[in-house]
């Protein structure tokens, strides 16, 4: 978990899809490590793994459309000494195969790297069967599991490199669309250590995954209105960086958490629980997908509907600071 990787990106330029970066990183790792094995459930195309499969056919396993078997086989391969990346759409991987994740991976403590692709509402208008708005909540409840939602290409590459070296289970959820770089070139990534992207004293945005760029844009909007914002990329949901959270809560007037997940059981409630137990009370808002039949549209349409784009976040932040 201590492995550190440094960014070489330029902030807010549009990058690649995190999925593509994941696949490229795996190819780089496999070039020098024959133990890297990818297991997919007929998902090599959606996982951008076609090139990996062509270059490393002996390190590619396809179990067909069978997510339970995907995870069980991945656990067995891990027990056989392989560095296994089990790759499947996040919606199916974390729901259909939940018991395999619970028992064969977490309880048995086999170091499988579960990669949930096209996570959150990446699949947009394909509807709720294809959304994963439960995965943080479900997997947070499992002992031994680490959970990472990379914000951009740098965090994605870094988390895959770190995951390859991990001796315990990890779940990494990746988005589908090309994503803006959120970090400066001197950012450093370490699992369990949040990255403070910009500092401020009025509102702290604690965001994760592909909502970090929205929080950063909101901070820029608010800055022009004289509201000073801190943006923290909480890429690791479990174990949560409590130190960074407590610092933000002590040094800012209000906290907003942002996540591409149901408002229940995810980053927001994890932060709220820690703050309450630390005896810290301050204005706080959990921003995410409401508990309802999910609005239809693209990922960004859905973000907009739930106040998760820059404008929506900025409005909510102003109201929160004014205690409206």
């Amino acid at each position: 978990m201590k492995q550190k990787v440094t960014s070489i990106m330029n902030q807010l330029e549009l990058g690649k899809a995190n999925l593509t970066v994941f696949a490229d990183t795996l190819i780089d790792l496999a070039k020098t490590d024959k133990n890297i094995v990818v297991v997919t459930s007929d998902s090599r195309g959606s996982g951008k793994l076609t090139s990996f499969a062509e270059q490393f056919p002996d390190q590619m396993v396809d179990v067909g459309i069978a997510e339970q078997n995907l995870v069980g086989v991945a656990a067995g391969l891990a027990a056989a000494g392989k560095k296994v990346f089990a790759v499947s759409p996040a919606c199916f991987l974390t729901a259909r195969a939940f018991e395999q994740i619970k028992n064969d991976v977490c309880y048995s403590n086999h170091p499988v790297k579960l990669i949930g692709i096209s996570a959150g509402v990446s699949y947009g208008a394909l509807g709720s069967t294809h959304h994963s708005l439960h995965d943080f909540a479900a997997l947070r409840a499992l002992n031994n599991m680490s959970i990472i939602a990379p914000a951009d290409n740098f965090e994605t590459r870094a988390s895959i490199i770190c995951a390859a070296a991990m001796k315990t289970p990890v779940y990494i959820r990746l988005g589908k669309r090309a994503i803006e770089h959120v970090h400066e070139t001197d950012a450093v990534f370490e699992i369990g250590k949040a990255i403070t992207i910009c500092d401020g004293g009025d509102v702290a945005f604690i965001a994760t995954g592909e909502t970090v760029v929205q929080a950063l844009l909101a901070a820029q909007l608010l800055g022009r209105q004289g509201v000073s914002c801190r943006v923290v990329s909480m890429h690791t949901i479990k174990p949560l960086d409590i130190e960074a959270l407590v610092h933000a809560a002590r040094e800012c007037k209000a906290i907003m958490t942002v996540e591409e997940h149901l408002v229940h059981g995810g980053l927001g409630e994890a932060c709220a629980a820690h703050l309450l137990q630390a005896g810290i009370a301050l204005p706080c808002k959990i921003v995410g997908i409401r508990d309802e039949y999910t609005f239809t549209g693209t990922q960004l349409d859905i973000f907009k509907n739930y106040g998760m784009t820059a404008a929506g976040l900025a409005d909510a932040a102003v109201r929160l600071v004014k205690q409206e």
Binding site: G76, L77, A79
Partner: peptide, 11 residues
């Protein structure tokens, strides 16, 4: 069986 399939494949 799934776990053993992975273990056998790894071997």
């Amino acid at each position: 069986l799934s776990f053993c399939t992975g273990l056998a494949l790894g071997g």
